[in-house]
Design a protein around this nucleic acid. Sequence first.
DNA 1: TTGTAAGCGTTATCAA
DNA 2: TTGATAACGCTTACAA
Lengths: 344, 344
Amino acid sequence: MSEEKEITIYDIAKHLNISATTVSRGLKDHPSINIRTRKKIAEAARQLGYRSNTFASSLRSRRTQTLGVIVPRLNSSFMSAVLAGMENAASREGYNLIIAQSLEQANKEMENAETMFNKRVDGLLVSLAYGTESIQHFDIFFNKKIPVIFFDRVAAHPDGANVVIDNYGAAYQVTRHLIQQGCKRIMHLGGNTLLNVYADRLRGYKQALADHKLPFDEKLVLNGNLTEEWGTEAAQYILQFKAKERPDAVFSANDTAAVYCMIALKAAGIKIPQDIAFAGFNNDPISKVIEPNLTTVNYPGYSMGQAAVTSLANHLNGNTDINATNTIVLRSELIIRDSSLKNK
Amino acid sequence: MSEEKEITIYDIAKHLNISATTVSRGLKDHPSINIRTRKKIAEAARQLGYRSNTFASSLRSRRTQTLGVIVPRLNSSFMSAVLAGMENAASREGYNLIIAQSLEQANKEMENAETMFNKRVDGLLVSLAYGTESIQHFDIFFNKKIPVIFFDRVAAHPDGANVVIDNYGAAYQVTRHLIQQGCKRIMHLGGNTLLNVYADRLRGYKQALADHKLPFDEKLVLNGNLTEEWGTEAAQYILQFKAKERPDAVFSANDTAAVYCMIALKAAGIKIPQDIAFAGFNNDPISKVIEPNLTTVNYPGYSMGQAAVTSLANHLNGNTDINATNTIVLRSELIIRDSSLKNK
DNA sequence: TTGTAAGCGTTATCAA
DNA sequence: TTGATAACGCTTACAA
């Protein structure tokens, strides 16, 4: 079983009395090779325990069959699903993935981009870090015409494609749902509006208010980093309102901030949803543990991963121009739970 | 900025009127190269925009400077921390990571192992899938003397090293803590005991009982897959006991099962911790959201990742024999929260 | 301390 | 449909 020496296409060639060129072609099912020859080659390769040397191949062909993935963090069920979807599509298309996390830091993202570039990935998939304010560090890719696809946390670029959920529409739905529950002063806990996801959620919130003739009040929008601590602080902000001006609902741009805000409000004697209704975003596991359970928005992570890789692979195979499908928008799903049901 | 042609060591050599060999050596800080020559080479490389071609290098040197990582799932804060620690150590040691998830399935783990093998990783880091019952699929690595390190979910192998936390000791501490709170009939929710982590936690639980003269009762041990649904079912099991025989504490081998068991028990009118005290394992974010907050065990994920990679790198550099440091045990930490404090 | 020259295993080119 | 040959860019004996 344990081979002494690596088997090369020359060994196969010698074994079959044909040329290495033919073996090379046969192994990749090149159409110009006789189908019976191809079969013989495949059989011999199996028998001899041949495995292709990707370095030699990459060196010569200048393709690595590898895609780079840069994500802010791996520790969410959403990202795990995205990556599973990416892996699935990638292996179907004959690509491997290199994964790196930026830990939400712009400089780490730059480093990662450089590493990916030096590893000569055939294409790049990026979800931007919270701290990223410019996407210049991807210019090395654009300059070399290496395709870049942004997903979820995206930025506009003439040569880059985007895969996103309809953050605007989802936020609109959430807000409308709260309005339909009778809420009139809906607060929005938002993130860095330089990022599309947070900007779009804010827009959806505003539009829903406008469409239902509710005034927009700047004091009812608080932007921050959406962490546990920040969610707790947001509760303090809410508690400072005079009784009459206090919001009767909160729509948070993520579940973490929503949940920690709820915990702090509950501790202060606020009843949820009677006094203040709540809705979050992400369908994080904690949304099913907090009492009352949190109304939220579910992302289709697996599909997003698949869509991003499939689109990238199509582009690499020359099937589509990257501009032809510049933005793919996936459907998300409103999950209604007790935290927003005032009339139950 | 956008170079037309890739710069090679020959371009640098020509530029400086020296040989490519010297450039190659200079670039890797080979000691036999004059330090001034090295400086000149580095400077020219920077100036010309040289980037090393890893394929040519790997092809020739038969090393990839790449480590493979196979994990059950990426979607836990623990795994994210592990990977961050691995990345940190890897980049310090000059290695890159390829990451794959087995999704807890043995056959996916086998596929991943094969992919890693074909990618010719210099070493492999594995946390075993829930469904894995044999580690034969890693024999291709052992046969070729490619080092394999198991971490967290490990298996014994003469040629493989392990990096783990002291599951036995942590479980012992948890159980002792519950006993000190006055609990006498402590139930254990466990996982697949083919996996070290669950077998060791069970052992620690048993030993703590024995050391405190509490009888071990088989009916108080329930093994399962530790999912949300299973945790809910475990609650039904607990509710079936006659009042006098009902456990007065539960030590779960993970937080998910503990939390969903708590939710179901609370719904049935059980008071926590008064009627039944609870402790979990993992320090999952949900443990801080459930009421009362869950006593649990925190893993040092980042250190574990660093330790695993550092150990692997040392071995690859020939600094240590893999048998010399066959098992590294890291300290974990008991986090006491309200769910286990009966006397508060 | 530096250089010469021979490969590593594959694929592109050109020819048959 | 197949083959001969020359790269791809780097490392490493061996030599100087």
